[in-house]
Structures are given as C-alpha cells and as structure tokens.
C-alpha cells in the first residue's frame, strides 16, 4: 500500500515526494505502519529550528524501493525541552541520528541510552546548531580573544 492510501491527509509535493504531518504521539505507529507496507529503508532523521514559532521540526525520511517513493514524516515539538520517544527499536540506525540531534539541538529522546557526548568533546555551551546560538559572537569572544604568544 502506498503512503497516500495509508495516510489520507498526506500531501504529495511532486511525483515520488510525500509529506505527512503528524503529532509526536503518532510517530512510532506511523513508522511501524510504513515499515510493514514496503517503506523498508529509513534514510535519515533531520531537525529544523523554527525559532519564530518556538518549534523544532523533526523529519523522518523513508524510502520505498517498491514504489520509488520518498516519504517525509514531520513532527513539531516545542523548543523548550519537550521530550520525544526514541524509535531505535524499529530501525537501529535512528540511534545515531538521535545522538547527533541531542548534541546539536538539545532534543531529549526518551529510551535512547547512548545520548551524551558524541561529536563534540567537552562542549560546555548551548547546543551549537540552535538558531539562538550566535556563532559569530561566540567565535569573536573565544578564538579571536585567545592571546598571541608573547615573546620577550
């Protein structure tokens, strides 16, 4: 069954591109439903920071070799520390994406035991991919202020 039949309110952006907006409680069931209906390839999990709305958008990308169709499941959560359920039992590779999003955006995935230090080592500040993290100011306050070696 194609995604359009499984989810009646799915929007077809163009041929082979389907976008489905869901609440965060529905996401595990939706992934399971897609996996059982031919969408066997979990491509990636990405995160978008919509700072004006105060939301993070998590996008689960799925692909079907049978229908040659790319399905995007979009979930919006509040920016201020709303928890999401981890889906690592369905697709083990989700664990790595969840670790990265936890480190770069600070989203907490309940049920993932490996959230913690991943790519950055000893990062003490706010997660750096959030839009309220001022990269330019941070760089100017840190790297440009490290003093030159003073030769006397």
């Amino acid at each position: 069954m194609k995604a359009k039949e499984l989810f009646p309110d799915a929007q077809e952006l163009r041929k082979g591109r389907v976008r489905i907006e869901l609440d965060k409680e529905q996401i595990t069931d939706a992934l399971k439903k897609l996996k059982e209906n031919g969408y066997t390839h979990f491509v990636m999990l990405s995160c978008v920071d919509w700072i004006k709305e105060g939301k993070f958008e998590l996008v689960y990308h799925m692909w079907s070799y049978e229908y040659k169709e790319h399905v995007m499941l979009s979930v919006k959560i509040n920016r201020d520390g709303e928890d999401v359920v981890s889906n690592r039992e369905l697709f083990p590779q989700i664990e790595t994406y969840e670790r990265e999003i936890h480190e770069m955006f600070g989203v907490n995935f309940v049920g993932n035991p490996r959230l913690g230090e991943f790519i950055l080592e000893g990062w003490p500040h706010m997660p750096p991919m959030r839009k309220d993290f001022d990269t330019e100011k941070f760089v100017k306050d840190l790297y440009y202020k490290i003093p030159e070696v003073n030769e006397e």
Binding site: L142, N150, E151
Partner: peptide, 27 residues
C-alpha cells in the same frame, strides 16, 4: 620557542580545548 614559552602555548591550548577563556590573566 615551544620549550621557552611552553606555559603560554599550554594556556592557549587549554582555552581552546575547554571552549572558554576563564584562565585568562593579564600577562
């Protein structure tokens, strides 16, 4: 130079490794 100004190089490295300037004291 690395031997002579070892403490200054180590101080700068520490600042970068810890992503903070806390250790800065006027020389």
């Amino acid at each position: 130079k690395y031997r002579k100004y070892y403490d200054q190089y180590k101080r700068n490295q520490k600042m970068a490794f810890e992503y903070r300037l806390d250790e800065v004291k006027p020389i």
